[in-house]
């Protein structure tokens, strides 16, 4: 997985969730996205699903896939790269 893709995912998170005052460098690639990590919730997750489809053409088809994909920035980047192969 490229660091470039991880950087793009972080930028997508900040942009789509309109997080003010945060840069990609502030996001730990391996931190949990939900709960204690970035503190996202299901409202944010759906926003990310839409953003992933729009920016990368990658679909998260169901809740079970979403649970796996949205563990961290790294798992999101891995999923995008896998789907784009």
């Amino acid at each position: 997985m490229t660091e470039e893709m991880i950087g793009k995912v972080k930028q997508m998170i900040i942009g789509s969730l309109r997080i003010e005052g945060m840069t990609p460098a502030d996001i730990d690639s391996d931190a949990p996205l939900f709960g204690a990590g970035l503190g996202l919730d299901s409202i944010d997750a759906l926003q990310l699903v839409v953003a992933m489809e729009k920016e990368f053409g990658v679909v998260v088809p169901d809740a079970a896939t979403g649970t796996t994909v949205f563990q961290s920035v790294r798992t999101m980047a891995a999923y995008i790269m896998e789907q784009k192969k």
Binding site: S42, L46, D62, A63, G66
Partner: peptide
Amino acid sequence: ALAGGAFSAQ
């Protein structure tokens, strides 16, 4: 709802 494609249903 989950079976019908909901992203989340709690």
